[in-house]
C-alpha cells in the first residue's frame, strides 16, 4: 500500500464569531432596555395585595410625584421575614427597624416634614384654595408601605402630607398574580 495518501486533514477550522456577536448584541440590548434605572425611587418592599387597585401609570414618579417608602431595614432582625409554626408571617414591631425613605434616603419624622415641605412648596397650585385658605401643592404623594409595616407610620406620613399641603395622597398596592 505504499504511496497511498488519505484525505487531507484541515488543521485550522476558523470559528465564525459573527452570529454569536449578533446574538450577544441582541441580549445586551434586551437587558439594557429592561433594566429600569428609575427604580431607585422605589425601595424593595412587599406591597399589600389588592384586587381592586387601579393600575399606576406613574410608577416611575416622573409626573410630579413624591414616593415615600416604608420599609424594614434591619437585616439581623430575628422576626422579620420569618414564619411561625402555622406558616404565618411574623411581624416585627421594633419601630427602630422600620424606615421611611424618599429616593433611597432615610428620614426621621422631623426631616421628613422638612423634605415634604420643600417638595410641596416646589409645585404649588396656581390659585388659593377657598376651603384651605392657602395655595396647596399640586404634587402627588405616593405612599409605598411594606405589607407588614405598622399602620402608625403610614398614618403619620399621611398626616404630615396633609399638614404641608400635599393633599393628593395615593397608597401603593400590588395587583394579585393573574391565575
Amino acid at each position: 500500500m505504499a504511496g497511498f495518501k488519505g484525505p487531507e486533514v484541515q488543521e485550522e477550522v476558523p470559528c465564525n464569531l459573527i452570529p454569536m456577536i449578533d446574538i450577544m448584541f441582541l441580549l445586551l440590548l434586551f437587558f439594557m432596555l429592561g433594566a429600569d434605572m428609575a427604580q431607585r425611587d422605589l425601595e424593595d418592599v412587599v406591597l399589600p395585595q389588592a384586587s381592586e387597585v387601579k393600575e399606576d401609570e406613574n410608577v416611575r414618579g416622573d409626573e410630579g410625584t413624591t414616593t415615600i417608602n416604608v420599609h424594614h431595614s434591619f437585616p439581623a432582625c430575628p422576626v422579620h421575614g420569618r414564619t411561625d409554626a402555622a406558616g404565618k408571617d411574623m411581624v416585627c414591631r421594633e419601630m427602630d427597624h422600620w424606615r421611611v425613605a424618599i429616593r433611597s434616603k432615610d428620614f426621621t419624622q422631623d426631616t421628613m416634614r422638612q423634605q415634604l415641605q420643600i417638595e410641596a412648596d416646589g409645585e404649588l397650585e396656581d390659585q388659593v384654595d377657598p376651603l384651605a385658605g392657602k395655595r396647596l401643592s399640586k404634587r402627588r404623594a405616593m405612599v409605598r408601605a411594606d405589607r407588614l409595616a405598622p399602620f402608625g407610620l403610614v398614618q403619620r406620613i399621611i398626616e404630615t402630607c396633609g399638614s404641608v399641603g400635599l393633599y393628593k395622597v395615593e397608597v401603593g398596592a400590588a395587583q394579585p398574580p393573574k391565575p
Partner: peptide, 29 residues
Amino acid sequence: VIFCLCVFFMCSFKFKQLEGKFDSWLPKG
C-alpha cells in the same frame, strides 16, 4: 466586553411587580 456587560445586566435584571394605587386624597378644608 459584550459578554461581561451581558452578565452584568442579566444579574441586575428583575421582573417588576405590577403595582397599582388607591387614591386617598385628603380633604382640603
